[in-house]
């Protein structure tokens, strides 16, 4: 359970946020299923992962997503932001 809290705090730190948490109730977690996101294999990361990619000005976001899908060999990918088109 400490692992989960540590990881969640790591996410806050990544987002430059300082947050306090309250322990409501302690629970055990089974070792039989689930695992820490930090223990994922590359194949697992490619199924549920995120890349902070520096898109160059030339290609469109759509074209870059198609390129990422192709080189990583994944069927699903999307992007989280497009700037307004230059005029």
């Amino acid at each position: 359970m400490l692992k989960g809290v540590e990881f969640v705090k790591k996410l806050d730190e990544f987002a430059s946020l300082e947050r306090s948490y309250i322990l409501v109730k302690e629970f055990p977690t089974s070792g039989e299923y689930g695992k820490s996101p930090e223990e994922r294999s590359i194949e697992e990361l490619l199924r549920f992962g995120v890349i902070n990619l520096d898109k160059p000005p030339g290609p469109t976001s759509h074209e870059v997503v198609a390129w990422v899908k192709e080189i990583l060999g994944v069927s699903k990918a999307g992007h989280g932001g497009t700037l307004e088109s230059p005029t």
Binding site: L11, F14, A15, R19, E38, R40, L45, V50, N52
Partner: peptide, 15 residues
């Protein structure tokens, strides 16, 4: 490639 959890790292969280 970061774990997908980072996508929502800015949201308030509950465990």
């Amino acid at each position: 490639v970061k774990p997908g959890e980072y996508i929502v790292s800015h949201l308030p969280k509950v465990i």
